[in-house]
Design a protein around this nucleic acid. Structure first.
Lengths: 339, 339
DNA sequence: TTGAAAGCGCTAACAC
DNA sequence: GTGTTAGCGCTTTCAA
């Protein structure tokens, strides 16, 4: 024991953990011993004794989705600053896997809390989860008071995206990405924003131009767009529920010899890097990822630290509309509005 | 203790861990007790006692690089099958951070081994690392016998990419991504392949068309391409050291009103999804990511499991050339050659 | 303010 | 094959 090299046990713990009640002299003495012996506390032992693992889990549906990997970066950074490690888990949107993770998951104890971006998980599954597991939800789901929720205002953002398309003078707006079933809450909020924009202008929604997709990937976008173009009366603007979908849609448009945005304007969602360098670059809704990440970590650690769980907080992160070539053409400039 | 509900301690451990020497009857009895009490072994305690954490770390320079996030998926999957959790760490290519992780890193004990994709780390730093840490290196660096190395044959792949460009009848080939300094080994191997292709055909290398970039990102590609186009005698084909670079380069080309591939053919490297849906889609070198991931995990676990470290293995993963629109135009089809 | 000692819940060497 | 027992290296009451 390192403590032999000066004083004794309990004090070392105090010093290493930076507790208050230690004489300056003692602290110095211990510190010196620590340095000299190159002592490093054993994380495992500490974890066992304290009952905490010093790790948080981040659960996302798909790791190779740029939106998530960009978000993850911020989370990892924020967690590390607080001395926490991040465990990453991918669910592939599998409801069973998601449920397992927030229930009496086998790996409970491996992490002290979870930042969770659910996809397939229903409200009910969320409800009967392990009540002792500190939890922060990302995305669209609204807090039931027992966890925190961080996300942008999807409805407003979607409305603004749609209004941008209408402002361009387009009249036949399509929407790609609706998911009119239990696990598609996120998509449904965006559809609601799409509708609201029309309502505010007193314009009719072209119901048949709302296309469903199983996911928000490039292939989904490409296929949906092809579907739309096969119609008698194709759209002149498309609101895509992710930048990936937009990228896929644009791919199809160009492959069919159409011009973006002259023939069809396209707007995406997420502001991933791909959309900044694509041809054309993609107009998009840009959520403040940095703030989402920071807030999520902050809230989770607060939750982990408290014995009496704080009330569930509803955090609205800001977003902006970023106009690029896919709606503005080559003269694209940036306009911003905070949500 | 769950053991009260039947027999006793040590046996439980045996059963739970699936060891051999247990009577069928005993096993059943224990199993029943386990089920009944809803017993779950405490991972932390197990880790402390066994000295192993059941976690492996994967260290990559940048998490939001599609190549890495695609690779990570495979690694996570493979590790999970073996009952291992994956801890992800991002170094931002910071040599100091990288060195720390493979030395007496503070978080040693948190993971049993590391799969490492180094960037800034010099050969020397690698040499004086913690010799007890099981290590598998991804990418270009060749094994010194004390760790395993998994990667494709960069020189051959790069030569094939270049030959593909020459086969198109192009004569002024540029290369974007060289890094002629200590930490740019990966880039240098690709440059070597680029040269070899010219040599084999008895063609001169246009030295002034080899452009250096600090990283392999879209902005790097975009900028380098702009630089090339500002020359008196621009290239008619470009070998980009990553798909992201290619995407950036194409962005610039199109912005300048040039046609890809008619005016300039572009080939990338990595086969990320972005390149399959971009306009034009990107011809590329496709490494077998699945195999790289599986092999890396397999070798690492083997290393973790052995008391006497196995000799460092050099694993060559296969790759293929995938021809798409950025070199073949809209009639792009797929040709494959294994490396 | 600091020492002593009792675990945290498991694994593994050692006997039976 | 299975029970006994001694730690793994820390945190944390409890005294002093």
């Amino acid at each position: 024991m390192a403590k032999l090299a000066g004083v004794s046990s309990r004090t070392v713990s105090n010093v290493v953990n930076g507790y208050a009640n230690v004489t300056e002299r003692t602290r110095a003495r211990v510190q010196q011993a620590v340095d000299q012996l190159g002592y490093r506390p054993n994380v495992l032992a500490r974890n066992l004794a304290s009952g905490r693992s010093g790790q948080i889990a981040v659960v996302v549906p798909y790791l190779d989705t740029p939106y998530f990997s960009e978000l993850l970066q911020g989370i990892i950074r924020a967690a590390r600053v607080q001395g926490y490690n991040v465990l990453i888990d991918q669910t592939d949107g599998d409801p069973e896997h998601e449920r397992m993770l927030i229930n009496h998951g086998s790996s409970r104890l491996l992490f002290d809390g979870v930042i969770f971006s659910p996809l397939g998980l229903s409200q009910e599954a969320l409800a009967d989860r392990d009540p002792d597991l500190p939890l922060v939800i990302l995305g669209e789901r609204v807090s039931d008071g027992r966890f925190d929720h961080v996300g942008i205002d999807d409805v407003t953002a979607s409305r603004q995206a749609t209004e941008h398309l209408l402002d361009l003078g387009r009249t036949r707006l399509a929407a790609i990405g609706d998911q009119p079933y239990a696990t598609g809450e996120c998509a449904q909020l965006r559809t609601r924003g799409f509708r609201e924009a029309h309502e505010r202008r007193g314009l009719p929604v072209h119901e048949d131009l709302i296309v469903h997709t199983p996911r928000f990937t490039r292939p989904d976008g490409a296929q949906a767009m092809a579907h739309l173009l096969d119609r008698d009366d194709p759209p002149d603007a498309v609101f895509c529920y992710s930048d990936l979908v937009a990228l896929g849609a644009i791919h199809t448009l160009i492959a069919r010899g159409l011009r973006v945005p002259e023939d069809v304007a396209v707007i995406g969602y997420d502001d991933i890097e791909d959309g900044r360098y694509s041809n054309p670059s993609v107009t998009t809704i840009s959520p403040d990822k940095e703030m989402i990440a920071t807030t999520a970590v902050e809230r989770l650690l607060l939750r982990i630290g408290s014995t009496t769980p704080p009330p569930g907080l509803e955090v609205r992160a800001p977003h902006r509309l970023i106009v690029r070539e896919s709606t503005a053409g080559s003269r694209a400039s940036v306009s911003a509005q905070h949500g």
